[in-house]
Design a protein around this nucleic acid. Structure first.
Length: 416
RNA sequence: GUGAGCGUAGUUCAGUUGGUUAGAACAUCAGAUUGUGGCUCUGAGGGUCGGGGGUUCGAAUCCCCUCGCUCACCCCA
């Protein structure tokens, strides 16, 4: 019997891990530079949280959740998205009474039962940031700036930023009625999927890729023309501020997002280096969510961004990730007695933060030299019978080939 | 859930109209005069040809079923 990893999951092997560490570091450093603090929530939550927060008509909740019953009969779900859990934690821990505003970020796995394809996994890593407690338009801008800065620092320059506003709940309800009647009058041109969606999640008809759907929606009434003055002003402020700060963007009425909690600003970052799944990240404002989860009415805005996709795009752009660090000194012992001496020297060096390792297979001298070379060690330290006698080993630089007799206790002084 | 393409050593791939013990490169390991890496040379290990069934004297090759992978639809990060 052969075991395979579950469909849609991945193994990150040692040869690729340096890449992940590097990107994770950029994400954390950049996000903290903007004054965000990390928050960690459980890998699974009560299923009801996502039904309530994300919405039962969404694809995520409707057909993509990993839901199971535990031994106590509770229905639990592996986190399919980051915002609802963070807001649950915000409310549950009374964070609003610590401070009127919180800037939070996360970097963790998300789980969705989808059919895997390029850039789409069943377990994927997302970093996201949320600003809770303020409805100031600059919050929206700040988050966009943060995402942009992370992308830039990963060598990604040529992504597209698309923006839209879907207004406040009531404005959207009114608009949806207008859109519905327009779509109904053109229903014979719509795809089957869009016909179904027309009733369940009308806005989503707008982001259909179907050519015929697009012909219909191109001429559909636009939500931006149906916003109240407050929403309209906020949207104009966001757009103008982005322009003023030199952030390229385009307004696109199709950016409606698939989660129910969004209000007002919505945005997506798209890349051409990603095949069919072209979203690098996306987000928006969710002013009703916290109330929905039982908290006091509190505004919030956030985004999520796929780390696998970020790495894919960075790689395509030839980004130089760091390399795995090689041990500095490789110890070669030519006898059992010499080996014991090595173990002691290595213990002492490691206390001094000098990285070192030695052969664990009892291999030949030549094989050990080869190993040191393959690992890219800067030095080898050789102890044979002569060296045991003199209590001085041979410290050899792999780059120059130079070799100097060095006392057992004086290796650190003779390297670097 | 729907559709298309692809499954041969660890990896990337060859494999002639079905015909002997299924190959190469890279990788791995070992050796090339006594205790010195990279380059080179020599050699070794490693495959139930995704799995099952069928046709045939004979199947990696033909047929059927099945599983897996990949990409697209869908959806999103």
């Amino acid at each position: 019997m052969k075991f395979r990893r579950p469909k849609g999951t991945k193994d990150v092997l040692p040869k690729d891990i340096a890449k992940w560490h590097y990107v994770e570091r950029i994400i954390r450093e950049t996000t903290e530079l903007f004054g965000f603090a990390e928050i960690r929530t459980p890998t699974f939550e009560n299923t009801e949280l996502f039904k309530r927060g994300v919405g039962t008509d969404t694809d995520i909740v409707g057909k993509e959740m990993y839901t199971f019953e535990d031994k106590g009969g509770d229905s639990l779900t592996l986190r399919p998205e980051g915002t609802a859990p963070v807001m649950r934690a915000y409310v549950e821990n009374g964070m609003q009474s610590e401070s009127p505003i919180h800037k939070l970020y996360y970097l963790t796995s998300m789980f969705r039962h989808e059919k895997p394809q390029a850039g789409r996994y069943r377990e994927h890593t997302q970093f996201g940031a949320e600003i809770v407690g303020s409805d100031h338009y600059y919050c929206d801008v700040e988050l966009i700036l943060l995402a942009k800065e992370v992308y830039n620092r990963c060598g990604i320059q040529d992504f597209r930023l698309k923006l839209n506003s879907i207004g406040k709940a009531e404005e959207r309800r009114n608009y949806v009625e207008i859109l519905k009647s327009y779509l109904n009058s053109n229903i014979e041109h719509l795809s089957e999927e869009s016909k179904r969606r027309l009733e369940t999640n009308t806005l989503r008809v707008l982001d259909s890729k179907d050519m015929n759907d697009r012909k219909v929606t191109d001429l559909a009434p636009k939500i931006l023309d149906h916003l109240g003055s407050e929403s309209r002003t906020r949207f104009d402020n966001v757009v103008n501020e982005l322009s003023r700060l030199g952030v390229k963007h385009e307004v696109d009425f199709r950016i409606v997002r698939g989660l129910d909690y969004y209000t007002d600003t919505t945005f997506e970052f798209l890349s051409d280096d990603l095949g069919s799944q072209d979203a690098l990240g996306g987000g928006g404002r969710y002013d009703g969510l916290i109330e929905q989860l039982g908290g006091k009415p509190t505004p919030g805005v956030g985004f999520g961004s796929g780390v696998e996709r970020l790495i894919i795009v960075a790689e395509k752009n030839g980004f130089a990730f760091g390399e795995q660090k090689a041990p500095l000194v490789y110890f070669i012992a030519l006898s059992d007695e010499a080996r014991k001496i090595c173990y002691g020297i290595m213990r002492d060096l490691r206390k001094l933060d000098v990285s070192c390792e030695t052969d664990l297979l009892g291999r030949s001298f030549k094989a050990q030299m080869r190993e040191a070379n393959k690992l890219n060690c800067r030095y080898v330290y050789i102890i044979g019978d002569d060296e045991l006698q003199k209590k001085k080993g041979q410290l050899k630089s792999m780059a120059t080939g130079d070799q100097v007799e060095t006392e057992f206790g004086k290796i650190k002084e003779n390297i670097e």
